[in-house]
């Protein structure tokens, strides 16, 4: 419970940092946190955290609830599957996965807004999501050493170490 609350606090801080310090395209720091959480604490917990973090973003947006809930929970689900099928995890693999999942998240959120809301982002220039993905990748590199996503705490707990 403590770790969930701590990471929710991180998500809240991440949203504040994104809105205050970035003019124009912003990194998706919440996505990085969701992926780290899923890697460290397991798939189910990661999906739950992704759902709650996505809900936080959708509520702050004030439009429909769901796009970021779906985007972040799918990212948590997928990164754990990828982790379970790879022998090792390092900063390069982590960054590559974050880049891929960032694109998946953007596509899912875009589709949700196009089909379920009255707003349209089809005229948005492509440079904005590309810049977002690049910034998110940089953020994941910077946060890798601090958050240590390679250390699978769920596995350690399950095996009783």
């Amino acid at each position: 419970m403590k770790k969930v609350l701590l990471y929710l606090l991180y998500a809240y801080a991440a949203l504040a940092i994104q809105s205050l310090f970035f003019n124009g395209a912003k990194p998706d720091l919440v996505l990085v946190l969701v992926c780290v959480f899923a890697l460290k604490f397991g798939q189910l917990q990661g999906v739950v955290y992704g759902t709650v973090a996505g809900l936080l973003i959708d509520i702050s947006g004030g439009l429909i609830i769901g796009p970021n809930v779906i985007g972040k929970s799918v990212a948590a689900f997928l990164i754990r599957i990828l982790r379970n099928n790879l022998f090792q995890w390092n900063i390069y693999i982590n960054t590559l996965m974050i880049v891929i999942l960032s694109m998946v998240d953007i596509i899912l959120v875009f589709v949700c807004f196009e089909f379920f809301s009255k707003v349209s982002f089809s005229n948005r220039p492509w440079i904005i999501p590309v810049t977002q993905v690049i910034y998110t990748a940089l953020a994941s590199i910077i946060l890798y050493g601090w958050l240590k996503p390679g250390k699978d705490e769920s596995l350690v707990k399950e095996e009783g170490y």
Binding site: A16, S19, A25, K26, D28, I57, S60, G61, G62, I128
Partner: peptide, 11 residues
């Protein structure tokens, strides 16, 4: 009092 923190909206 607040701004949208994502890239989707400018509000």
């Amino acid at each position: 009092i607040a701004r949208d923190p994502t890239n989707w909206f400018q509000t």
